[in-house]
């Protein structure tokens, strides 16, 4: 009987090895371990054995059964794995085919520049102030120390709606309105927006363009505060290694007035086509708020001072991204706008 058992085991193990499908293997299981299988038969025939042999034989049968079961399971796992692999192989795809595009859209480059500037100044504690694009002559000019007939009005040829109403030529009227509304208290604002001037549209002029201005008013605001603020701004916007320089200039609403250059971000100051070989690029105009402007808005200029600055997002975008024609910003060619979808370093 022992011999018979051994033979049975050999036979079963061989069949297990030979089985090549899950079904064949299941047949082997039923054939050897099933209720009608030889091993069950053997166990059933145990009763006929002498009592002292029964435990020994019982153990032997169990060992054989376990060994067959173990082998069956191992083979089953292998076959299942093979089946899965075969299935996966069938499911394989061409990973080099194009992906399904996620919807894309992006900011207009001017909005991108404006928001970048806004976010820097917000981090410095500024608020964003906005105002009407159709303005009163008073806020656009008079409150900014540009009375009627002032020669500096020539600097900005305007679109008038009536004698007293015009399309704002700069975002400065928002400053005048804010000062008037604040009734003498401190101010830290950034004013972005569209502005309009009588210019024929060409590569460098646009009758409509964008401006972003800043205004800080408070006690003891100094010109050095303006310089420090602009220096931080230049480094944030154009790179940590940027240097700034101030040049005297003139704006009716500031005194002293300056223009700010930054060291060229393309050549680092050695001179290239971007900076026209000077090493410097003009970025913005600024100055200390003119006492007349403060006075008109109800501040006492002997106590309260302030600084203001203003720049053109078009110019900044043109410099930063190498755009050669200002009209690109207003033709809304998708091939242009869509280039501004990615992040920058």
């Amino acid at each position: 009987m022992e011999q018979q058992l051994q033979q049975l085991k050999e036979e079963a193990l061989t069949k297990i090895q030979e089985a090549s499908t899950v079904k064949e293997l299941n047949d082997v299981r039923v054939a050897y371990l099933g209720k009608k299988g030889p091993i069950t038969d053997l166990l059933k025939g145990m009763g006929k054995l002498p009592a002292e042999e029964r435990p020994k034989m019982g153990a032997l049968v169990n060992v054989v059964r376990e060994s067959v079961t173990e082998s069956l399971e191992a083979k089953m796992m292998k076959l299942e794995e093979e089946a899965i692999n075969a299935q996966l192989e069938k499911e394989a795809i061409d990973v080099t085919l194009p992906g399904r595009p996620a919807p894309t859209g992006n900011h207009h480059p001017l909005t991108r520049v404006v928001e970048e500037i806004e976010d820097f100044f917000i981090s410095m504690g500024y608020e964003i102030a906005e105002g009407p694009e159709v303005e009163k002559d008073y806020y656009n000019f008079e409150a900014l120390n540009l009375p009627k007939g002032h020669p500096a009005r020539d600097m900005q040829d305007s679109f008038y709606i009536s004698e007293e109403i015009l399309l704002r030529t700069h975002t400065s009227p928002v400053q005048a309105r804010t000062m008037e509304a604040k009734g003498g208290s401190a101010i830290k604002i950034i004013c972005p927006g569209k502005v309009y001037r009588r210019d024929n549209d060409d590569a460098t002029h646009s009758h409509q363009f964008t401006q972003i201005e800043g205004l800080v008013v408070g006690e003891d605001i100094r010109m050095s505060d303006l310089k420090g603020t602009l220096d931080l701004f230049a480094k944030k916007m154009f790179g940590a290694e940027r240097e700034i320089r101030l040049r005297p200039s003139f704006f009716p609403f500031t005194e002293p007035s300056v223009e700010m250059d930054i060291s060229c971000f393309k050549c680092g100051g050695d001179g290239c086509n971007v900076c026209k070989k000077t090493g410097w690029i003009e970025i913005l105009g600024a100055g200390m708020v003119h006492p007349n402007v403060l006075k008109m808005a109800g501040y006492d200029p002997s106590v309260v001072t302030g600084f203001a600055f203003g720049m053109g997002p078009e110019r900044i975008a043109m410099l930063k991204y190498g755009v050669e024609d200002i009209r690109h910003f207003y033709t809304n060619d998708v091939r242009f706008i869509s280039q501004f979808h990615r992040t920058e370093a």
């Binding site: 608020e127 401190a186 830290k188 050095s224 505060d225 310089k227 420090g228 220096d231 101030l246 005297p248």
Partner: peptide, 23 residues
């Protein structure tokens, strides 16, 4: 200032109550 040179002006920041900026 302009004859003394704007390069000579130091860089400082406004000394005032700090205000929460924001949209």
């Amino acid at each position: 200032a302009r004859m003394h040179g704007y390069d000579e002006i130091p860089k400082t920041l406004p000394v005032s109550e700090s205000t929460p900026g924001g949209l």
